[in-house]
Nucleic acid binder design. Structure first.
Lengths: 126, 126
DNA sequence: GTAAACTATGAAGTATACTTTATAGCAAGA
DNA sequence: TCTTGCTATAAAGTATACTTCATAGTTTAC
């Protein structure tokens, strides 16, 4: 699969896909080169990039993703530790999301124009 | 309350608090100046900044927050529209989080070192 | 009253995640 | 064949969210 097809199927700019490769999160596993030097991706790249998109969308960095990729080279204990750490981060993010959502629902039910400020009367988890 | 106390209580650098003010998300409502020109914050600033932190942590931009603040000046219909839009964004983020979490749980249960790549065998929502 | 600590401003610097530009080779259809 | 379009690389540019620096006024503790 050539880069433009990947771009279309995963809905990312070509430049972004090349950038991910440069950053080391698209590896040989998903990518080889044709004789003309064009990139040729495996069909797995689509699912993989969807996971990458999900991770980036919820606040993981490219560096985080690199560390998850590199899990293959380290001990199972270390793997489990890193993965659990990431899951904890996700759960913290989920709490934040729920708080933000409740803040917004609160705004919907309040007469914002007259007396309430953004978030002014909301409770948040510290 | 002076800036250093706010910084300590909300656990943000002083520079960040001044930056938020510069970006227009800390308004007169929470801030006045003393005769010596020092910033003097109301106690409400703490709860407010916690909401700001939550929002930023889950992917909202400072610009998003500004638009939420400015809800006070616009019609209720427009307010409701913007708020519902933000809630939809949060719900999309929640889906992404759940996907990312399942990806990681999948990794925990797989023999990563031997055959599975990061995310390679996971399903994600398109 | 003076040194250390806190406050202020504006401007420049940094990190992350991309995007755009410039230049050039390769390919497919009329 | 020639033009249009896709591919390539390297380097510079952009946006967002801060942080650091340079400089200077203010306050507090001894």
């Amino acid at each position: 699969m050539k880069i433009s097809e990947v771009a279309k199927r995963i809905d990312l700019p070509i430049s972004t896909i090349r950038y991910y490769e440069k950053m080391g999160i698209i590896t040989e596993e998903y990518l080889l080169r044709e004789q003309n030097n064009y990139r040729n991706y495996t069909s797995d790249i689509i699912d993989y990039l969807q996971v990458v998109k999900n991770c980036l969308a919820v606040g993981f960095t490219i560096s985080d993703i690199k560390s998850m990729i590199s899990l293959k080279g380290i001990s199972k204990e270390e793997q489990a530790r890193i993965i659990k750490e990431k899951i904890a981060e996700i759960e913290a993010a989920q709490l934040n999301l729920e708080n933000a959502k409740q803040t917004l629902y609160g705004l919907l039910q309040t007469d914002i124009t007259c007396e309430s400020g953004f978030g002014k009367h909301d409770r948040t988890v510290s």
